[in-house]
Design a protein around this nucleic acid. Structure first.
Length: 228
DNA sequence: CGTGGGACAGATGATTCTAA
DNA sequence: TTAGAATCATCTGTCCCACG
């Protein structure tokens, strides 16, 4: 058992924290948290040997505790995709809702499934009945297009926001039905319609062959719909 | 001719497995 | 726990075809 000196703590903990948290920001927080805990432990019991195993255990428990404490925490979409689009800080969800009319329905649905709801290329390819490679190319082109559009004046964005289609009444069943039928055009129109009504599809998961939808209404209420 | 879409190959990154 | 290897997933560039 090798006892560590205090200046080694941070280096060891940073590496380990990065591994268990999966991102730099949480890792830094966790490292600080653990160092505070270890200092407190040493203060209470100066004879305690500080080993790697001890640091790992403290870090692991602290991480589990923080996960429990933040179980309800929502993760803004921008955070997840910060690394993917660092230069424009795009929110794919917002851009999608505002600019979808400029993309083809197919491109729109591929972008929606993969960038918003984290479907894999394989799952998306099955869904839209295309080859996986074709899905990847379409996704890349859709992203490129969105990037270009996002670089254009914000006036375009504003224009799109106020362009509300007259008489567009889309309910949740239409969107769910469109997904069940794997119909990109129907999904596209239903999604746009809902967004314009202030309804947002905030999560979509495929579990046991059923699609689980989580919607958020204009009053910020969340509710789930499960496909048949 | 420009644009959208599909196919393919190679590169790159992420994840998983395994041995030390 | 860690490092390295193997495997898998994704991205990018290029070419081709169809269509208006």
């Amino acid at each position: 058992m090798i006892e560590l000196i205090r200046k080694d703590w941070k280096e060891i903990l940073t590496t380990y924290s990065l591994r268990i948290t999966g991102n730099r920001w949480d890792a830094e927080d966790l490292t600080q948290d653990v160092i505070v805990k270890v200092i407190e432990a040493v203060r209470k019991n100066p004879e305690r040997p500080i080993t790697k195993a001890y640091l790992y255990r403290i870090a692991k428990n602290a991480w589990i505790d923080s996960q429990r404490a933040h179980k309800i925490r929502t993760v803004p979409f921008e955070q997840n995709h910060e690394a993917a689009t660092p230069d424009f800080l795009l929110s794919s969800r917002e851009l999608l809702e505002q600019l979808a009319e400029r993309l083809s329905p197919l491109m729109c649905v591929i972008l929606l499934l993969m960038d918003v709801f984290n479907f894999t290329a394989k799952e998306t390819a099955v869904f839209v009945k295309m080859r996986e490679a074709a899905v990847q190319v379409s996704l890349g082109r859709a992203r490129l297009k969105l990037k270009k559009l996002s670089q254009e004046s914000t006036a375009i964005k504003k224009k799109k926001v106020v362009q509300k289609r007259k008489g567009t009444v889309v309910d949740l069943d239409v969107l769910v039905d469109a997904f069940q039928r794997c119909d990109p055009k129907a999904i596209y129109h239903a999604f746009i319609g809902l967004a314009q009504e202030g309804m947002h599809l905030s999560q979509l998961k495929a579990l046991n062959g059923k699609l689980h939808f989580t919607f958020r209404d204009p009053d910020d209420n969340l509710f789930n719909v499960i496909s048949k």
